[in-house]
Computed example of a mutant assay.
Amino acid sequence: SFEHMPSGIDTMTVFVHQSEFEEKEQKVLQGIQRCVHPDYIDLESDLALIAVVGRGMRSTRGTAGRIFSALAHANINVKMIDQGSSELNIIIGVRNEDFETAIKAIYDIFVTIQL
């Protein structure tokens, strides 16, 4: 099973639980290579996903800017960004070790500081 699968014009990313994937890693990678013939496969581990969700996001200018400014000020590197066409959420990937700091930074910018 997978958690999230954002895609772009020429890329596709698949997020899976590391514990479920470790035993099957080589078999899955070989299957992808055989069936799809990608230019390259990049495997990255220890990422956490954060979903920022709200009905008001669609009609409020600067929401994404506030999120990413808060993360930058907290010295957190964003590894992945995905926003669906509904504009009701933004999903962000950060290193596992940055997860709690990222949650606090996002919470603070919207709830504590309310900029």
Rank of each mutant, 00 (worst) to 15 (best):
R55I: 00
E23P: 04
G62K: 03
E23Y: 07
I50A: 12
A70P: 07
E44T: 13
G62V: 08
V36H: 11
R61T: 09
Q18I: 06
E44V: 14
R66K: 07
E23D: 13
R34D: 07
T60G: 07
I50M: 07
G54Q: 06
R34T: 04
A72P: 06
R95V: 04
N75W: 01
F68C: 05
Y40S: 14
S19E: 14
N75Q: 11
Q33R: 08
E22F: 05
V78R: 00
D42R: 11
Y40W: 07
Q30G: 03
I92D: 01
F68S: 01
R34E: 03
V53P: 05
S19G: 10
S86K: 00
S86W: 00
L71T: 09
Q26E: 15
T63D: 02
S19Q: 13
L88W: 03
R66Q: 00
K27C: 02
L43Q: 11
A64P: 05
I92W: 02
V52T: 05
I90Y: 06
K24F: 11
Q26S: 15
A74C: 09
S69R: 13
E25N: 13
H17F: 07
P38E: 07
L47Y: 15
A51V: 14
G62Q: 02
G93P: 09
R55N: 11
R58D: 04
V53Y: 08
F21P: 09
Q26W: 13
R66E: 04
G56A: 12
G54W: 04
T63G: 10
K27L: 08
L49P: 10
G65H: 03
I81Y: 12
E22A: 14
L71A: 07
E25D: 12
I91T: 15
S59T: 15
L43I: 15
V36Y: 15
T60Q: 12
I90R: 06
K79G: 08
H37M: 02
G54C: 00
K27Q: 12
A74K: 08
H37Q: 09
H17C: 03
S19Y: 07
Q83V: 09
H37D: 00
V16Y: 04
R61A: 15
I67H: 02
I91P: 03
G31M: 05
V52Y: 01
E23M: 08
V16K: 03
Q30K: 13
Q33T: 05
H37G: 02
L49N: 10
R61Y: 08
R58V: 09
M80R: 02
E23S: 14
L88Y: 03
Q30C: 04
A48Q: 07
